[in-house]
Every structure is written in C-alpha cells, then in structure tokens.
Write a protein that binds this DNA or RNA. Structure first.
Lengths: 146, 146
DNA sequence: TTAAATGTAACTTTTGAAGTTGCGTCAGTC
DNA sequence: GACTGACGCAACTTCAAAAGTTACATTTAA
C-alpha cells in the first residue's frame, strides 16, 4: 500500500461493507482484499469505530460491520473520523519575529479553513450506499457479495 | 525546516521580495533568513523562475528578484508554479479489477478537482504586495527593507 | 585572475506512514 | 474447561519522500 492511503482504505472498505451490511468482515479478509496488513486495517477502522461509524466484535466469529445504514454514512463522515487535514501549515514552524510570516499566516489560515470546509461539503453529498450502487462492472473477484 | 514546506518557503520569500523588488537577493541570504539551505532555496525558487515569477542572475552580484510587479503575483501563481497537489489519489494504486474502487474514484476525482480549484481561487485573491503591506509589526530583524 | 553567485547531480539524513511481530483479552465451539 | 479465532495494542522495523549536504561546473563582475 502506498503512502497516506488511510482515507482510500477506509472509503474502499466501507464501500464494500455497504454492499452487505449484515456480514461480519474480519480484518484479515479486509486486509487481503486491500493488499495490506490486518493490523493496519484495525488501526484505520478503529478510528471509524471511535467516530461511531463501525462496530467491532471480539472473539470467535467477531469482526467489523457498519454501525448505521449505508445511506446514512457519507464520505465526509469517514474523512472527519480519520482526523486528518488537507493542508497543515504548522504555526510553530513560523519564525515568531517575522512579520511577513505573520501576515502570510493570517491570509492563508482563512484560505485553508474555507478550502477544508468546501472539501467536506462536497464529500457530504455522497454516501457509501451511493458508492456501492454506482459500481459499473460485474467482476466476480470483488463484488460477488452484491 | 519542516516537511513539505516548499510552499511556505516560496510565499515567505516572495513576501519579502515584494518589500524591496529592486534588491537582488542571494540564495544564501534567503536561506539564512528562512532557516534552511541555499541549495534548497535554489531548488524551490528555480520552479518559480520556470513559471516566470522570478529571474535569477549568475555570477558576481547575481541573485534573485521578482520578474513582475508585486501586485501582479498572487499566491495562486506561487502554488501553481510549484506543481504540487493538495490531494493525490494515485489511480495506479487502485486495484484494477475492483469496481468499488472505480466507483469511488469517479466520485472522489470530481471532489478533488473542485476542491483544488476552490483553493486556487482563494489564493488568487491575495498578491504578495498584499502580504507585504498587511504586516503589522515593526520588528527590525526581518522587515527593515521596507 | 579571482571572487561570488547560480545550476545541478549525487549523496546522506530525517521523518512519518506503513508494515510486522508478539502477546493479552475476549467470546464462541468442541 | 481447553481451544480456536477474532480484536486491541504496544513496540519495533522498513520504506519512501522531503530536506539537507557536498561537490563541482559555469558564469559574471571587479
């Protein structure tokens, strides 16, 4: 798996879960399909559980499943659950006595805030049910749960 | 200097140059002020030169200066010159036979494109002359060129 | 000719994400 | 009650991209 792909992993996984919400998915199954490691999957899905998007069951026959109906989970929910930022302008990185940097930060922080919100608003218009329904191909390798 | 700070370095540097467009700035001076290395500065400013925002002169008394009036260089120009992307959803990372990923990519690529454009539009409303003028403090350490 | 600047290639260091291992805990099943 | 198969989590290793560094060729003005 490539770098910084947690968002992709999360969206992808929930897209599949939307196709079959009642099925318990183990982190091993998910990891194998996503071409990554079960521990990495648990790390990422753990964030989604904290945010109330997923539930997990320990023990035999345990695993992961959606905590809500697929049409009630948007891509924005997933993005926010991961707690990542589009752009990180570390303020501590700023030389405290340089007024140009202060000025720049004033301008940029507004832009960043607005861009972030714009991104979230867009993501909020798509649910994982939409993602699941919109699939176009009929490949057996991954979509046979539908 | 921290990670992925090329944009910050570029904006910061051009903000200072806007205060005194006629002065030739050497990469050593810039690097020292920005707390980094002359070669790193040349790398970043080289991109801005390719984009026509800066000119550089070799040899004795050489250095860098703005290629246009400060009020004709926006933060969007700088961002675009660096050729970076806010969000990179590597399509090659996508399993080619997974239709959920295809569906996801269809949804997301539009969102990314729109967000990127929104970001650029916001940046385009601020010029480096604005950044320079808006500075509030009177510190001698960095703004004595004004 | 010399000094001071950029241009650039090659290399090393740093850093954060991803990947891995190991083990504890929990819950069905035999 | 032991066994099996799942998550939870901490600690460690690996990997890749950016930053930092070194070295040297080239250019230009004094």
């Amino acid at each position: 798996m490539k770098r910084n792909s947690r968002l992709a992993l999360a969206m992808h996984t929930l897209g599949h879960m939307a196709a079959n919400p009642s099925h318990m998915h183990t982190s091993s199954e998910i990891a194998e399909h996503a071409g990554t490691n079960p521990v990495v999957v648990r790390r990422v899905l753990g964030k989604l559980r904290e945010a109330g998007l997923l539930t997990s069951e320990k023990g035999h026959a345990g695993g992961w499943c959606l905590a809500r109906e697929p049409h009630l989970i948007t891509l924005a929910d997933i993005y926010l659950a991961l707690g990542e930022r589009l752009i990180s302008m570390d303020e501590n990185d700023c030389a405290p006595d340089c007024c140009i940097e202060h000025s720049l930060l004033n301008h940029i922080s507004e832009v960043i805030k607005s861009t972030e919100q714009n991104f979230i608003n867009h993501l909020a218009t798509t649910t994982i049910a939409d993602v699941q329904k919109a699939k176009k191909c009929k490949c057996k390798t991954c979509c046979d749960e539908a």
